[in-house]
């Protein structure tokens, strides 16, 4: 039964990927991408990489899907404001033979190179698993992935957290917040009660799950990125359900929160340098506590980053009243 499961997964993934690429209708492409993310998470489970499955389920499918829907809303609004009629969406290729041939050739070439790289690996090479296992006791955590991410290769993770901050700075630099969702029902003047009930139920659960994933990361798959993604999901739900929050002007705590993860991470590293150790070389006995401190701060920053990315740009400065162009025009 296991081979049947795996073959079904592979065939479905390839088919979904192709359909998502050739879809001329962007909304269809987005939905196919969401479905692709869900199946990809199942594939990671089958590859026995539950850490990546968690991240893929939360970020790859859930939050990226919501971000794409947000982008699509902005695109539609821009088209409407420009007075363009929506082009009739039809599936199929448009690039002609040359484009199709080049794409196919490139894909085949990259696949062949990847296959060759895997084939060229020395057979039966142990990898670094044994080395990690041997020093696991000193890492402060008992889960190997967390030990690598936050201790043995903490420098890489530090830079990744920096990349996230750069991403939101770049988005804020090029765009103003323009929330493409109407957060009130035009007739009732409020969020529909079903949505309020759902969000009131889900957000506390998501906060607990985010805390759980952060804590369990020390001993099992989980950690800051997965916890931050769940936190970001809760933030997106709140933005969609609290009309006045989606138009909140920029506040100092937003910038502080966005930078908190990187600041704490760097702060710990520099404090260790001042204490005469190397960057992020945790003293014995302190590793577990320092990792938890860093991960907690990074979780908050990732959650806030993903939530604010959903607004599509930098929140308006100062008084919110004159900038509420789209959400306060209901009668």
């Amino acid at each position: 039964m296991i081979p049947a499961l795996d073959i079904l997964l592979i065939v479905a993934l390839l088919w979904l990927a192709r359909q998502a690429l050739v879809a001329r209708d962007l909304f269809k492409g987005v939905v196919l991408f969401i479905a692709f993310g869900l199946l990809l998470a199942l594939a990671w489970v089958r590859l026995r990489a539950p850490d990546i499955a968690l991240a893929e389920a939360a970020i790859g499918s859930g939050l990226t899907g919501a971000l794409f829907l947000s982008t699509l809303g902005r695109l539609r609004r821009m088209e409407r404001e420009a007075g363009q009629a929506e082009p009739p969406p039809e599936d199929g290729r448009r690039g002609g033979w040359t484009g199709g041939f080049l794409t196919a050739a490139g894909t085949v070439l990259v696949t062949a190179l990847l296959g060759w790289a895997v084939w060229a690996l020395p057979a039966g090479a142990p990898g670094l698993g044994d080395a990690v296992q041997a020093r696991l006791g000193e890492s402060g955590v008992s889960h190997r992935v967390t030990a690598v991410l936050l201790n043995f290769r903490a420098y890489d993770t530090l830079l990744e957290v920096g990349v996230l901050l750069v991403a939101i700075v770049a988005v804020w630099a090029v765009a103003r917040a323009d929330f493409p969702f109407v957060t009130r029902n035009a007739e009732a003047g409020s969020v529909p009660p079903q949505q309020t009930a759902l969000v009131n139920l889900l957000v506390p659960v998501m906060l607990v799950v985010a805390g759980y994933l952060l804590w369990i990361g020390a001993t099992a798959p989980g950690g800051a990125f997965q916890a931050g993604a769940v936190l970001g999901g809760a933030g997106v739900l709140l933005l969609l359900s609290r009309p006045h929050w989606a138009v909140l002007p920029e506040r100092r705590w937003m910038r502080t929160g966005l930078a908190a993860g990187l600041l704490v991470f760097l702060g710990v590293g520099l404090a260790l340098v001042i204490a005469g150790r190397r960057l992020l070389e945790y003293p014995a006995g302190w590793a577990g506590a320092l990792i938890l401190l860093i991960e907690a701060a990074v979780t908050l920053s990732i959650g806030l980053t993903l939530t604010l990315l959903f607004l599509g740009g930098r929140p308006a400065a100062g008084d919110p009243a004159p900038t509420m162009t789209h959400t306060n025009q209901q009668p």
Binding site: I34, L38, A41, V45, P50, A53, L54, A57, A58, S61, G62, L63, G65, A66, L69, S70, L72, G73, R76, R77, P180, F181, V182, T183, N185, A186, Q195, L198, V199, L202, V205, M206, V209, L213, I216, A220, P221, G222, Q226, A229, V230, G233, V236, L237, L240, S241
Partner: peptide, 30 residues
């Protein structure tokens, strides 16, 4: 498959709701 998959299932369920709500609001928005 190991009880860790329960956590993956939990995240599946929670994040699917986010996409659903975003879609519902978009339907009214556009």
């Amino acid at each position: 498959g190991g009880s860790v998959l329960l956590d993956v299932a939990l995240v599946f369920a929670l994040l699917a709701a986010v996409v659903g709500v975003a879609f519902a609001r978009r339907g009214i928005a556009a």
